[in-house]
Design a protein around this nucleic acid. Structure first.
Lengths: 238, 238
DNA sequence: TTGACAAATTTGTATAGACATATAATCTCA
DNA sequence: TGAGATTATATGTCTATACAAATTTGTCAA
């Protein structure tokens, strides 16, 4: 099916982007297919190479295509029908509900990476880590145990923080520019000491959120967040 | 505090981006402040204008700065300290792990909204809903029970779907343009019939994800997803 | 046929200059 | 002083060219 040309007045790089997106959308170019080279697009659209380059570079940034130096440009793998949601900061969340947030610091120490942490962090053995254990309260009801390990190379001032004023997460957001994070969430029975801190009864499951954050191309922190079984809600829009 | 210069060998446009990001991160340049013009950055870094332009253009695309033609470049409003994560479609997720996905349809019916559903949907009493109950398998291991209620006004063809070929979610993504969704996640003990479908032992907790999707300004579907306690992982980048 | 090397292809980055367009500052004149 | 016109500033796009770096292809000899 013929596709309407992009409106007159549209920048050339945008017309090229639209052309490529159209071909992919129509199924003419499929996942993994090579698409025309910059040179070919130059001739096709009568533009200089820098213009074709900008179009393809932006499409690569948008994960529509993948570019391989020396090889070519290829249609990227179809993106997931992913639902984007925002998991908020616990303190903000509590405050957003109009409730009082308070936290208790149970542990704050400097440790050398033992085997288990080394594995989680992917760091050389003997690296320095900080370990903190904090219980968060909403209106004096415990709602989260935060067990966190922080890479000292990324956040050297961690021990000096006043965690009654700002949460470790808030500090890390300032200290270590975040590149990304990966999550694991699971339901499990809490160990007795966690259950006690959360004032939970026996046989009550916990919601466990594990978060690993990346900064400056290394693991910045690993946090294990224990929630009493109850609801934990969040929302997202498109 | 002095900031280490970007490593030698880094492209010039990237060094400029790092410089700007560093100034913003250190608080030297604050929200709304004007940052140096392209011309100024050219002189500072000894590059041509196109190079400075690329650096600032990419920072604008990343929503770090806002550019106004004729006026200047300004530090953008701080982004919400929210972690954006992607919750993937279950079938895609299983396939992404290189495993076989299969589903069993346990229930598929047309019902008039009873009180409880009416509340969840926020629909007038007597409205028509579709109800499906599907068990998803990964390599013949049950991994999710999907209990879903769909607004017939939004997806009238729901009953005619072949859910062995595509999941309800995939159908809904096509049929009802998604506006947004809200989530609730909790850990809880499954009722016996759910536990049986998931082949779970006693005393094992479930991870329960409730998802409400919106389409055309009304609730499109409510899904309750039961997972065996084990991990459910996802990741996100900024 | 295979391995090593050279050549061609393709993307990655950068330059210096050009003109267009939107905004902000300045000047002029009533 | 105030309004409108002019000028300066800053971003938006584009060109033609250049060299670097990674990959693929081609060639030739062992």
């Amino acid at each position: 099916m013929a596709r309407a040309a992009t409106a007159q007045g549209t920048p050339a790089f945008q017309r090229i982007k639209d052309h490529v997106l159209g071909k992919i959308h129509d199924g003419d170019w499929r996942e993994g297919d090579a698409i025309p080279t910059e040179e070919a697009l130059c001739k096709l659209f009568g533009v200089s190479r820098m213009t074709a380059n900008r179009a393809l570079r932006e499409l690569a940034a948008e994960q529509v295509v993948v570019r391989v130096q020396g090889s070519g440009t290829f249609v990227a793998q179809e993106r997931y029908q992913a639902t984007v949601v925002a998991i908020k900061n616990i303190a903000d969340e509590v405050r957003a509900r109009g409730h009082a947030h308070r936290s208790e610091l149970h542990k704050l120490e400097r440790v050398r990476a033992a085997d288990q942490q080394v594995v989680r962090f992917g760091l050389p053995p003997g690296s320095v880590l900080f370990h903190s254990l904090i219980v968060h309260f909403e209106n004096d009801q415990p709602i989260q145990v935060e067990d966190r390990w922080v890479n000292a190379a990324v956040a050297p001032d961690y021990l000096a923080q006043d965690f009654s004023k700002s949460t470790p997460n808030e500090y890390l957001m300032r200290a270590a520019p975040l590149q990304g994070a990966s999550y694991e969430i699971e339901a499990s029975m809490p160990p007795p000491e966690i259950a006690e801190m959360l004032r939970m009864g026996e046989r009550e499951p916990c919601l466990v959120l594990r978060r690993k954050t990346m900064s400056r191309n290394q693991v910045a922190s690993v946090a294990v967040l224990w929630h009493p079984g109850g609801k934990y809600s969040f929302s997202g829009a498109f």
